[in-house]
């Protein structure tokens, strides 16, 4: 799988570096306007760049998978002696790396602009509970990978069902995706209704020094529904397995 990841990254390296260059240049141009515009305006425009580039990289993440089903490179990729699990995992990992690289570049400029308008970002970050941060990162990964798995599943199922008619396959993948999302939302709502149990995580540790004692006040609790959280993990796992099965057993190249 390591080799697959290496070649996937090589394949999209130029376009990703290009997008990162666009982010850097456009943010530098914004910063050059610091005397003419307010910091709030610059932060707002930087946020707009973030959203726009995240949309672009999200579309690329989808194409990372769909391109290899539609183009002749499928002959190369699907002739390789590798399992469908490895193939799919490498697509997800490289897509996530691409996504994180673009997100991280944007965050550098958002962070810089935020501290310049004296938002207490550093203070807020220093008070964040480490458990909350780790849980948040884990949840973000699961949610994004789960979403990609659902999209990849929709593309693979549509291609497996429609075979040669590309336009119908494209429309079919949208229909499957929408129906799947509606189904997931309904199940998630039902789980919330029937299993309302939650667990709480401290978002922030508010420390107050009192003589030699540090009193920890935990009043920034975030409630997380247990059933829905397990369901979100299941979505990623189930759709990964289903997509891998389609690639292995049903898909015609």
């Amino acid at each position: 799988m390591g080799n697959l990841i290496k070649y996937e990254i090589k394949g999209y390296l130029k376009e990703t570096l290009g997008l990162i260059a666009v982010i850097i240049i456009s943010n530098i141009l914004l910063l050059a306007k610091v005397d003419a515009w307010t910091r709030q305006t610059i932060l707002a425009l930087s946020t707009f760049i973030t959203i726009a580039t995240i949309v672009v990289v999200f579309v690329w993440n989808i194409k990372n998978f769909s391109r290899d089903l539609k183009e002749n490179t499928a002959y190369l990729l699907f002739s390789l002696p590798i399992s469908s699990n490895s193939l799919l995992a490498s697509k997800l990992i490289t897509s996530f790396i691409q996504y994180i690289a673009v997100l991280f570049t944007n965050f550098i400029f958002l962070y810089y602009n935020s501290i310049k308008i004296k938002l207490n970002i550093n203070e807020a970050i220093s008070k964040l509970n480490i458990g909350f941060i780790l849980l948040g990162i884990f949840y973000c990964i699961i949610t994004y990978v789960g979403l990609l798995c659902v999209i990849y599943f929709s593309i693979a199922l549509s291609k497996a069902a429609v075979k040669k008619k590309r336009k119908i396959a494209k429309l079919g993948s949208w229909v499957i995706f929408i129906i799947t999302c509606i189904g997931i939302t309904k199940i998630s709502d039902l789980l919330y209704r029937f299993f309302p149990q939650t667990f709480s995580v401290n978002a922030m540790n508010l420390n107050t020094l009192s003589g030699d004692m540090t009193i920890m006040v935990s009043d920034q609790l975030v409630n997380i529904n247990i059933a829905q959280s397990i369901f979100d993990i299941c979505i990623a796992v189930v759709f990964f397995i289903a997509t891998s099965y389609l690639l292995r057993k049903k898909l015609d190249i």
Partner: peptide, 21 residues
């Protein structure tokens, strides 16, 4: 046909199949 057979079969398709990069 599966992972093993792909390791012993060398397939040359009738169209260009290498990555453009």
């Amino acid at each position: 046909p599966g992972v093993y057979t792909k390791s012993i079969v060398a397939y040359l398709p009738d169209t260009p199949f290498l990555y453009k990069w």
